[in-house]
Nucleic acid binder design. Structure first.
Length: 269
DNA sequence: CGGACATCCTGGGGGC
DNA sequence: TGCCCCCAGGATGTCC
């Protein structure tokens, strides 16, 4: 599942391939990917040039001359640069035909990803981006502490709440808890301000390290699309043993697979 | 308002 | 070996 580091990697990779190219046409094979009326989306986007790509949390924002659209990859969304010779995948859902005869294809096995037109000037202050909390790099300790101290949920569940902190998904939530020696089931409100400060620092560090390594990919690698470059060394997520050699335990928290080491991650707070 | 849970989808894994 | 069933999972909507 692409999280902040993977989406950042996709952004940086796509910049090399699509900036300053004009969209000659769009083919929408699976319309539900587009949240707008498909004809309106096409009309606003065709004959426009990709000027810039932005990223907020796990969202990509493609900025054109007088419009922009946000794209969320959800579970398995990928972008791929193709030529007309590249055979169509059964999971290619949207094709942007560019003016240098390359194609930008959106591929998504689960069909969960979405695209939506947004205002080019004010997208950060409109839905859905205005719902997001700050990314860990910019998060304010006092603000996060104030929000967590009222939360009765598990800290790992709170880390997945994009309105609290933007960009963390299930993989990094598990890894962050491990790095904190924190049991993921610990109540969010049990964390001291000192631990919240540490939580933000650890989150920033882990996300930054993953960006440096090109993002993590669980399912498929870059051969199948731009979705991260290398496998980051995960310490608990989908692992059997922690780095100390202890057995990893898998539980479900709020319906999400949660991996932790019961020995290394006591309910310390 | 916060929290729990269903929904969307498909491939893959488990069970037989 | 093969088929059927079930289920994970990010964001959103609904319900209480």
């Amino acid at each position: 599942m692409p999280e902040l580091p993977e989406v950042e990697t996709v952004k940086r990779t796509l910049e090399n391939f699509i900036l300053n190219k004009k969209i000659k046409d769009i083919e929408v094979i699976y319309p539900r990917i587009i949240e707008d009326d498909v004809e309106v989306f096409k009309q606003r986007v065709v004959n426009k040039t990709f000027l810039k790509i932005d990223r907020v949390g796990k969202y990509l924002i493609f900025i054109l001359e007088d419009i922009a659209f946000v794209s969320h990859l959800r579970m398995e969304g990928k972008y791929q640069i193709c030529t007309k010779e590249t055979s169509l995948s059964k999971h290619d859902h949207v094709i942007f035909y560019l003016d240098d005869d390359t194609q930008l294809r959106y591929n998504d096995v689960r069909k969960f990803g979405r695209m939506k037109l947004v205002d080019k000037e004010s997208y950060k202050t409109l839905k859905p981006l205005n719902q997001l909390g700050k990314e860990p790099f910019e998060a304010d300790v006092n603000e996060i502490y104030q929000r967590l101290k009222n939360k009765d949920t598990a800290i790992k569940t709170a880390l997945l709440d994009q309105t609290l902190l933007a960009g963390i998904g299930n993989i990094y939530a598990n890894e962050i808890c491990y790095a904190m020696h924190l049991n993921p089931q610990t109540k969010a409100k049990a964390l001291s301000k000192k631990r919240v400060k540490e939580l933000i620092e650890v989150s920033s560090f882990i996300l930054n390290e993953a960006i440096k390594q090109g993002g993590t990919t669980i399912h498929s690698f870059s051969a199948n699309g731009i979705d991260g470059l290398f496998q980051v060394q995960l310490k608990v997520h989908m692992q059997e043993k922690c780095p100390q050699g202890h057995d990893i335990k898998k539980i479900s928290l709020n319906g999400r697979g949660t991996y932790y080491c019961p020995i290394c991650q006591k309910a310390r707070r």
